[in-house]
C-alpha cells in the first residue's frame, strides 16, 4: 500500500475540485451584485434535478441531460437576477442577502414539490462512468472523479483568462467596479449582470450534477452547495484565483478531519476553517481590504 498518502492527496484534490466549481459561482455572483448568494446550494440542487429530469426523459442520454441541466440553470440564474436581484439594486447589501435566503427556501420547496423528497441515484443511468481508471498500478481514479478534476482545472485556468482578456470579461469587471460609469459608457449593466448570474448558476449546476452522480441526489443536499462559500470567502470573495487556494485549504481540512478525527466532523470542517480564516484575515487571502465592509 505504498500509495496510501498519494491516494489521500487524490481524494483531497477531487474534493478541492468540487469546491472550486462551487466557490467560483459565489465569486461570480459576488462580483456582479456584491451579494453573498446563500441560495447557491439550492440552485445547485435545482440544476442537478433538471439534469436528472433530462436523464429520465431521454432515458439515459448523458449529453442531452447535461445540456438540459446547463441551459435550465443558465435560464434560472438570469431570471433570478432580473426578477429578484435587479429590483433590489441600491438597497443595503443585507437586503440582497436576505432575499437569497428567501429564494433558497422557495427553491427548496419547489424542488421538493416537483421531484419529491426521495433520494435518487442518477449514476444508475450511466454505469460505465463509475468504472475506475488506473493511473499507475495500484492507484486508480473513477471516471467521474477524473472529469471533476479536469473540469475544475479548466475553470481555474479558463475563467480568469476569460475575465481578463475577452470583451465580455472586461465589461463584467468594469460593471463590478463602477456600474454607474459602465452604464454611462454604453454597457447594458443588467444584461452583463444577468450573464454573471447565469454563469454562476451553471457552475452550481455542474457541481450538483457531479455530486449527484458521485454520491446521491435529493433536495437535502443543498448544504453541500452552501459549504462552497467557505473557500470563496477564504480566497477573498472577489478573487477567482483565491478560490482555488481556498478550496485546497478547505478540502485538505475536510478530508484529514474525516480520516483522522471523525467522519462526522467533516461536515463542519469547511466552516471551522472559515471561522479561523475570518479571525486571522477577514478580507480573505486574495481579497481587497476595502471589500470587507460590503460583505
Amino acid at each position: 500500500m505504498g500509495y496510501a498518502h498519494v491516494s489521500l492527496m487524490l481524494v483531497i484534490l477531487i474534493q478541492a475540485s468540487f469546491y472550486v466549481l462551487l466557490g467560483m459561482g459565489y465569486v461570480l455572483i459576488y462580483r456582479a451584485t456584491r451579494v453573498l448568494n446563500l441560495a447557491h446550494g439550492d440552485l445547485m440542487v435545482f440544476g442537478a434535478f433538471l439534469f436528472y429530469q433530462g436523464l429520465v426523459i431521454t432515458s439515459g442520454s448523458v449529453p442531452l441531460a447535461i445540456t438540459t441541466g446547463i441551459l435550465g440553470a443558465a435560464l434560472t440564474g438570469a431570471i433570478v437576477y432580473l426578477g429578484l436581484m435587479r429590483p433590489l439594486a441600491g438597497y443595503p447589501v443585507a437586503v440582497g442577502v436576505l432575499a437569497t435566503i428567501a429564494l433558497a427556501i422557495v427553491l427548496r420547496s419547489v424542488t421538493t414539490a416537483i421531484w419529491s423528497g426521495q433520494t435518487r441515484y442518477p449514476a444508475e443511468y450511466i454505469g460505465q462512468l463509475a468504472r475506475p481508471i488506473e493511473l499507475v498500478s495500484g492507484l486508480s481514479i473513477s471516471a467521474i472523479d477524473a472529469v471533476i478534476v479536469l473540469t475544475a482545472l479548466i475553470c481555474i485556468l479558463g475563467l480568469p483568462l476569460l475575465l481578463r482578456r475577452s470583451a465580455i470579461g472586461v465589461e463584467m469587471r468594469g460593471v463590478s467596479e463602477n456600474a454607474l460609469l459602465a452604464a454611462q459608457r454604453g454597457i447594458n449593466i443588467h444584461s452583463v449582470n444577468a450573464l454573471s448570474w447565469a454563469a454562476a448558476t451553471v457552475m452550481a449546476a455542474i457541481a450538483g450534477i457531479f455530486f449527484s452522480l458521485k454520491v446521491r441526489l435529493g433536495p437535502d443536499i443543498w448544504y453541500v452547495g452552501l459549504a462552497g462559500f467557505a473557500p470563496a470567502l477564504i480566497g477573498g470573495m472577489d478573487s477567482l484565483r483565491g478560490v482555488a487556494i481556498g478550496a485546497l485549504i478547505v478540502a485538505t481540512a475536510e478530508v484529514l478531519a474525516a480520516r483522522f478525527i471523525a467522519p462526522q466532523i467533516a461536515l463542519a470542517a469547511p466552516f471551522l476553517v472559515l471561522l479561523v480564516a475570518l479571525w486571522i484575515r477577514p478580507w480573505g487571502l486574495f481579497g481587497s481590504r476595502e471589500e470587507l465592509e460590503r460583505i
Partner: peptide, 19 residues
C-alpha cells in the same frame, strides 16, 4: 470615479462603445 481603476488603460478604452 471617472475611470475603471482595476482595468488596464486599453481595456478602459475598449469598454466604451455606446453609439
Amino acid at each position: 470615479r471617472k475611470i475603471f481603476e482595476t482595468l488596464t488603460v486599453w481595456d478602459n478604452l475598449r469598454i466604451a462603445h455606446v453609439r
